[in-house]
Design a protein around this nucleic acid. Structure first.
Lengths: 293, 293
DNA sequence: CTTTTGTCTTTTATCTACAATATACAGATT
DNA sequence: AATCTGTATATTGTAGATAAAAGACAAAAG
C-alpha cells in the first residue's frame, strides 16, 4: 500500500453528513474549500456518491437522490490517519509502563508492532522528539527518557515562564481584538460545564486547551505558541490515562480559570500574574501527582 | 546507494591521524570506545588498513607498518554526512534570498537539487521545523516563514527569558561542580582570543556557543537546553553568512562575556542579571541587524 | 469575463529493499 | 575470570517505487 486514503474517507463521511439538507450540491472548488481538500479529492468523493446512487452527477448538476444510510459511511477506524495510529500505540506503551525510563526504543519493532513501514515510524519519532520524552543515539536506537518527575517539573517551569509572559501581553490587545470575544465565549462555556459538571467533566480537557492556547497566542511568539502544543499533547494523554479525582480536579481548574479570566478582563497586571500563578501551580501539582512511581 | 559509509570514512581518517604515535593498536572494543563507533566499523577500518599495507593484523596483534600518507585519507567531502549536505544546501537557499518568506518549499525539488532521496529531505525538514523557520501544510508543501525581523525578535525574547533564568541557576551550583572549571577554561580562552583578535576572530562563534551552552545547562531543564540548539544553529549560520563588522562585534561580545563571567563568579544575582541582559541586548541587535531587508 | 469542469502533471505519504552499522553470543586467548 | 575475537543476526539510514492527493491549465459554461 503506497499511501492511505483516509483523507478521502474522512471527507466523504463529513460530506455525507451534510447532504441531507441540500438538494443540489455546490461547485467543486466550493466543496474543496468547505472540507479543506483539493478538487481531485472532491471529484473522487462525488464519483463514489454517484456510483453508490446517492447523487446524480452531470457537470454542474449534482442532485441528491436519497439521504445516506448508516452503511454508506466508512467505518470510523478507517478514517484514522497512520500518524494517529502510530501515536496512540506509542503513547500507550509509554503510559502503561510497558516501556520504562531508560529503555531502548526500536523503530523496527514499533513498525512491526503497529503494522506500519519503518519510514512512518521514524518520522513520527523525529516529530515526537520535541516533546522531550525520547532522545536519539545516532546510528542506533532511541532512548526513552520517560514521563518522570523531572519531566513534569521541567515542563511546568517553562510553561509558567511562557504563560505569565503571555498573560501580561494579553492586556495589550486592543479592545476590538477577536481574542476578547473568544475569551467571552470560553467563559460562557466554563459556566455551562460547571452547571453540568456531573455529566460533562470529561469535556474539560478540550476547553482547557482552548483557553490556554488563547492566552499563549497573545504572546505573538512562535516559540511560545509551539510550546503550547507540547503542553496540550501531554495534558491530553494525561487526562485520558489518569482519571482519578478527575471530577474534583476539573471543577477546581474551572473555578481558577474563571478567576484568571476575570483578572485578564480587569487588565490589572498584578492581579493577572497572581491568578495565573495560582492556576499554574495547581496544574503543576496535578501533573506531578500523575507521574508513575 | 542504500546507505552512505561516511561514518566509516570519517572514523578511518581520525584513526589514521592517530596511528603515527603507536606501534601496536589497542583492542577492538577499546578502539570502538575511543572513536565512538561499533566493533563492526572498527573491524572494517582495520581491514582496510591491512589491505592498504598500513598495518599487519592478526587477532590481537595490530602492528603499524608505516605512517599514513596524504592519499591514504579519504577526501574531506566524502566524510560529510548526507544530513550535513542537505542542511547546507537548504540554509544556502534561505540565506542567499534564493527563496523569500512565504515561498513554497517542495521536498521533491530539494531532493532533485541536492541529489538525495526524498525520504532524507523530508526527515531533514521535519527536524528543521523546530527552528521556527518553516511550517508544514499537511498533504501539501512546506511554507518558508523566513529569517525575518519577527523571527529575530521572537527568538531573542525566548532566549532572554531562558538565559536569565539559567544564569540565576548557575550560582546555585556547588563549588566543586565541573561547570566552574569549564567557566575558568572558557574565560582563559576569551583572553587568548582577545590577545590575538586580528587573526582569530572567526573562532569566536564556537567559543560563544560553548559559553552559552554552559550557562543554559545550569538550568537543568531539557527544554531550555534544547532551545540552545536553536540559538546555536541560527547564530552559526549567521556568523558564516554575515561578516560585516564581524571583528568589532566579536571583540565587543568577548568583553561582555568577561563581565558576565565575572558576575557569575561573584554569585551576586543582581549583577549577574544586569551583565546577562546587557550582553543579550547587544546580541539581539547584532541578530536584528543581520536580517535581510 | 468570471467561474466551473475535464484532463494532465507534479508532489506527498508510505512501503519495500538493501548496504552500513550496531548488537548478541559463543568460542578463543590471556 | 575477564576480556577479546569471530561470526551471525538485527536495526538503522537511504533510495526508489507507487497510490493518493494537490496543483496547473485550457476548454466549456454561465
Amino acid at each position: 500500500m503506497a499511501r492511505q486514503n483516509t483523507l478521502f474517507k474522512e471527507a466523504y463521511n463529513r460530506c455525507l453528513s451534510d447532504i441531507e439538507e441540500q438538494a443540489n450540491l455546490p461547485s467543486e472548488p466550493e466543496l474543496g474549500e468547505k472540507y479543506g481538500i483539493s478538487r481531485t479529492t472532491v471529484r473522487a468523493i462525488l464519483g463514489r456518491m454517484r456510483d453508490n446512487g446517492l447523487i446524480v452527477w452531470d457537470k454542474r448538476n449534482k442532485i441528491v437522490l436519497r439521504p445516506p444510510k448508516d452503511d454508506d459511511f466508512f467505518p470510523d477506524e478507517e478514517t484514522n490517519s497512520l500518524n494517529q495510529i502510530i501515536e496512540r500505540a506509542f503513547m500507550k506503551r509509554i503510559l502503561t509502563g510497558e516501556a520504562s525510563p531508560g529503555a531502548q526504543i526500536s523503530e523496527a519493532e514499533i513498525a512491526r508492532d503497529v503494522g506500519a513501514g519503518t519510514t512512518s515510524v521514524r518520522e513520527f519519532l523525529i516529530r515526537f522528539s520535541r516533546f522531550g520524552l525520547i532522545e536519539k543515539r545516532p546510528n542506533s536506537h532511541w532512548v526513552l527518557k520517560g514521563f518522570t518527575l523531572n519531566f513534569a517539573l521541567e515542563l511546568s517551569e517553562v510553561r509558567e515562564m511562557f504563560e505569565v509572559k503571555s498573560a501580561a501581553a494579553f492586556v495589550t490587545l486592543p479592545d476590538d481584538h477577536p481574542a476578547w470575544a473568544e475569551l467571552d465565549a470560553i467563559e460562557a462555556e466554563h459556566h455551562t460545564l460547571l452547571g453540568d459538571i456531573e455529566k460533562r467533566f470529561l469535556d474539560f480537557s478540550a476547553l482547557d486547551e482552548r483557553f490556554h492556547l488563547l492566552v499563549h497566542r497573545a504572546s505573538g511568539n512562535r516559540f511560545v505558541i509551539d510550546f503550547h502544543d507540547v503542553i496540550a499533547f501531554i495534558f491530553h494523554y494525561h487526562y485520558q490515562w489518569n482519571k482519578t479525582h478527575a471530577r474534583a480536579r476539573n471543577e477546581r481548574a474551572l473555578l481558577e480559570h474563571l478567576d484568571y479570566i476575570a483578572a485578564l478582563r480587569s487588565r490589572d497586571c498584578a492581579r493577572i500574574e497572581a491568578a495565573c500563578r495560582i492556576h499554574l501551580a495547581s496544574a503543576r501539582e496535578t501533573l506531578i501527582a500523575s507521574v508513575p512511581h
